[in-house]
C-alpha cells in the first residue's frame, strides 16, 4: 500500500514514470516545516549535495548517508524572527541563505560553517521591509525593499565567509518589485515582475533599468520564475496565482512569454494548466528548474509540468500521511523535493 501511495500518478498517457522516489528524511523535531532546499557542501575535500530544511525557528543541514538515507549535520536556531523561506544560491558552496520576518521579510541571513572558529554560525546581510529576494550565480543576492518614500533595489556580492564584499544599487521601477529571476545566457541581466504587472529588465553591471514591459491585463499579479535569452528574445516563465479560470485554458499554472526587449512587445508561447479533473488551484510559490515547473495545489497534491511543451507530466497525490505543502527542485538536477508540514521530505528523481 505504501509503495502504491508513493507512486506518482501519470495523466499523460502511457510512458515511463517521470518521478521516482529516491529517499526520504523525517525531521522529528520539526513542528511546522516552512521550506526545503539543497546546497552544495564541501568538507574534507568532498563536495556533495546536502538538503536544507527550515521550520519557523530553526534551519537544519542534512548529509547523505548510504543507502537512501539522510543524517542531520547541524541545526541553526534563529529565535528572534520566524524563518519565511530559504533563498537558494545557485552554484554556491557552503552557504545557506534564509529570509526571516513576520508577514514580510524583515532580514536576510547567511548560515555557514567557519573554519576559523571551527563552528557553525550565521551573519546578517540585510534588514528592511524586503519585498522580494533572489540568489544568483557567483554568490550574488538581489533584493527589493521599500521605505515610505522610495523603493531600493540592491545587489550584494557575498564573500565565502558570509560577509558582503560589494553592494550595487539598481535603478528601481516606479511600482514595487514582487519577484526576480536570473536570465540564462546573460550573466549580467536580471528580470523582475512588478505589482503593476510588468516585466522589468536590469543591467546588473551598471545598475541600469533597461526596459519595462507590460504583461497584459488577462493575467494579473504575474510572478517571474526563470528567464532565457535566445535568438534576440527574452523568454520569461511566469506564474499567475491570482488568474481566473478561463474556458480556453482552464486554470493557468505557468506561462512562457516571449518578449522582444527592443520593442517591448510580447506573445504567449506556452500555457501550462491544471488538467481537467485535477481539483484545486496552485498555491503561490511554485518552483522552476530548467524547463520544468512544480507547484503545490490546494488539494495537497504536487503537480509537475514540462513548460516548453505545456504538458502536465506528473502529480504526487496527497497521501494518508498528509498533504504536500512544499515543492522545490533540488540543485544539480538531483530531482524534486516534496515536503509536508510535519517535517517529512521526499526526494524524487525526475
Amino acid at each position: 500500500d505504501v509503495s502504491e501511495q508513493l507512486t506518482p500518478v501519470l495523466l499523460d498517457g502511457p510512458r515511463e514514470e517521470s518521478l521516482q522516489l529516491v529517499s526520504e528524511l523525517q525531521d522529528s523535531s520539526c513542528s511546522c516545516a516552512v521550506d526545503v532546499s539543497t546546497v552544495w557542501w564541501e568538507a574534507a575535500g568532498c563536495r556533495e549535495l546536502r538538503v536544507v530544511t527550515a521550520s519557523e525557528s530553526a534551519v537544519s543541514l542534512w548529509e547523505p548517508l548510504a543507502p537512501a538515507c539522510w543524517g542531520k549535520v547541524y541545526t541553526w536556531h534563529l529565535g528572534e524572527m520566524p524563518v519565511i523561506q530559504i533563498v537558494p544560491l545557485p552554484d554556491t558552496c557552503n552557504l545557506v541563505c534564509v529570509a526571516l520576518g513576520e508577514l514580510e521579510i524583515g532580514e536576510i541571513r547567511l548560515l555557514l560553517y567557519s573554519s576559523e572558529t571551527d563552528s557553525f554560525k550565521h551573519s546578517l546581510v540585510k534588514t528592511g521591509n524586503i519585498k522580494a529576494v533572489v540568489g544568483l550565480k557567483d554568490r550574488r543576492l538581489v533584493s527589493s525593499s521599500r521605505t515610505m518614500q522610495e523603493q531600493q533595489v540592491e545587489m550584494v556580492s557575498l564573500s565565502e565567509t558570509g560577509g558582503s564584499k560589494d553592494r550595487q544599487t539598481l535603478m528601481p521601477p516606479e511600482d514595487t518589485v514582487t519577484a526576480f529571476a536570473e536570465v540564462e545566457g546573460l550573466r549580467e541581466a536580471l528580470v523582475g515582475t512588478t505589482a503593476g504587472n510588468s516585466v522589468v529588465v536590469w543591467n546588473l553591471k551598471t545598475g541600469q533599468l533597461l526596459r519595462k514591459m507590460h504583461v497584459g491585463y488577462s493575467y494579473p499579479a504575474s510572478i517571474c520564475h526563470r528567464a532565457y535569452s535566445d535568438s534576440g528574445l527574452l523568454f520569461v516563465v511566469l506564474s499567475h496565482p491570482l488568474a481566473k479560470e478561463s474556458e480556453s485554458c482552464g486554470s493557468p499554472a505557468f506561462r512562457v512569454v516571449a518578449f522582444n526587449p527592443c520593442t517591448g512587445r510580447s506573445v504567449g508561447v506556452m500555457f501550462s494548466c491544471l488538467p481537467p479533473g485535477c481539483a484545486g488551484r496552485q498555491v503561490p510559490g511554485g518552483d522552476v528548474w530548467d524547463a520544468v515547473g512544480a507547484a503545490v495545489l490546494t488539494s495537497g497534491a504536487v503537480a509537475v509540468w514540462d513548460l516548453l511543451r505545456g504538458q502536465f507530466v506528473a502529480v504526487l497525490p496527497p497521501g494518508p500521511a498528509g498533504h504536500w505543502a512544499l515543492a522545490r527542485w533540488a540543485g544539480g538536477g538531483a530531482g524534486l523535493l516534496a515536503g509536508r508540514r510535519d517535517g517529512t521530505v521526499h526526494l524524487y528523481r525526475y
Binding site: 541600469q208 533597461l210 535568438s231 522582444n260 526587449p261 527592443c262
Partner: peptide
C-alpha cells in the same frame, strides 16, 4: 514568433539597450 507580432528583433538587444538607457 515573427516580426509582425514582436517588431524588429536584435540579437544584441542587451548591449543596445544598455547604450540607450540612462546611466
Amino acid at each position: 514568433c515573427s516580426e509582425s507580432d514582436l517588431g524588429p528583433i536584435s540579437l544584441n538587444w542587451f548591449e543596445e539597450l544598455s547604450t540607450e538607457a540612462p546611466p
